[in-house]
Design a protein around this nucleic acid. Sequence first.
DNA 1: TTATTACTGTGAAATATTTCACAGTATAAA
DNA 2: TTTATACTGTGAAATATTTCACAGTAATAA
Lengths: 208, 208
Amino acid sequence: MKISTKIIERMCRMFSHLDILSKENKPYVSSKELAFALGATDYTIRKDLSFLGIIGYGRKGYEVLGLKRELAKKFHLGHKHRACIIGLGRLGTALLDYEKFQEEGFEIVAGFDKSTNKIERIRTNIDVYTIDRLKPIIKERNIELGIIAVPAAFAQEVADNLVESGIKGILNFSPAKLIVPKDIMYQDMDFTNALRFIAACFATQAKP
Amino acid sequence: MKISTKIIERMCRMFSHLDILSKENKPYVSSKELAFALGATDYTIRKDLSFLGIIGYGRKGYEVLGLKRELAKKFHLGHKHRACIIGLGRLGTALLDYEKFQEEGFEIVAGFDKSTNKIERIRTNIDVYTIDRLKPIIKERNIELGIIAVPAAFAQEVADNLVESGIKGILNFSPAKLIVPKDIMYQDMDFTNALRFIAACFATQAKP
DNA sequence: TTATTACTGTGAAATATTTCACAGTATAAA
DNA sequence: TTTATACTGTGAAATATTTCACAGTAATAA
């Protein structure tokens, strides 16, 4: 049976939580504790893990390191993923140096912008290029993920170029809704929409 | 019957799409077109709108402006919402001047940081304060939404203060998972987790 | 050793959500 | 006026997801 995106989403958050637990040297964790941390129920967590073929220990729960290793294997979360950022404005440059990416295995290996001026002035350890070099650099440096931080008006064009370059996934920070082939993984990070959602939830008493 | 967060989420994105259509002076839009723009099916869109008591016109579809107005009314998306940003690092300052917030009715009225130094150096039209003035300013200026952009280690403390100040909703950009009372609307914008989700989706062939 | 406790694993039931099928409706063309 | 068309609205079916209930299991205490 196909694995649902709901499960994937929970497992990603679980992976992040396991990281914290492992740093605290906690050897075991129960479905109840995980459920609390993820905002789910213990039934759901057990169903998820059992569906993935991950087993726990009666009375102890799940082994933190073992569980983390399993999730890393099943969801490719262990090894490094190479990413690039397109658009080096306020947001783009903030993302370039966002340490959490590196810490969690997402290596930002390149930044692109159309302004030569901006490229020259930027102070970072990451290689920055003009946008016309997007395709060759992505291929050459084996980049899997593209992070779009350009204004909405240019976002689709950038996405098209990323797709042509053979990128596997796109994270879109522009408010534009992009059209990409179905085999490219794509997610929006639309800040305004997130605020809208919060406002709408309290307008309707729904609890997200 | 209670309205589901899935519907709310779709309606928020629909609202944003209707904004584009209205700027193009398109008078009517069909459920099929909306579905394509939102990545849903036309059945779902019609079910959603009919559930909300919104009616369309046979052969024409839904009236763009009318639909937008209805959604604005039902989800409080029309009027201004006052928000503040806590944490004025790279990301926080980028958010302070993010024009889309203002354009879409979210008015950033204040920024907070614990560093007096930073506060003095910042160049923006928005009022900035030291963090110790958080509570009085939120009450005084009637701020509804708090946007957290501090490092993970301080995020929970900031959230607690926001809740005590009577905030209604929180958008959390820190990777920390926060614990807030159930009546406070809360959403995470965890960049790393978004990348993780994309990587996990292509590890499992799931299409988000 | 036995009892107790704190867990997991999982079918079955309940619930939520999406999809389907098609009658109903308004517009435009003939 | 009639017919074709391009839609909506919605009950019913299908599917997906969550919750429940409880048997099974391992550790600990007595």
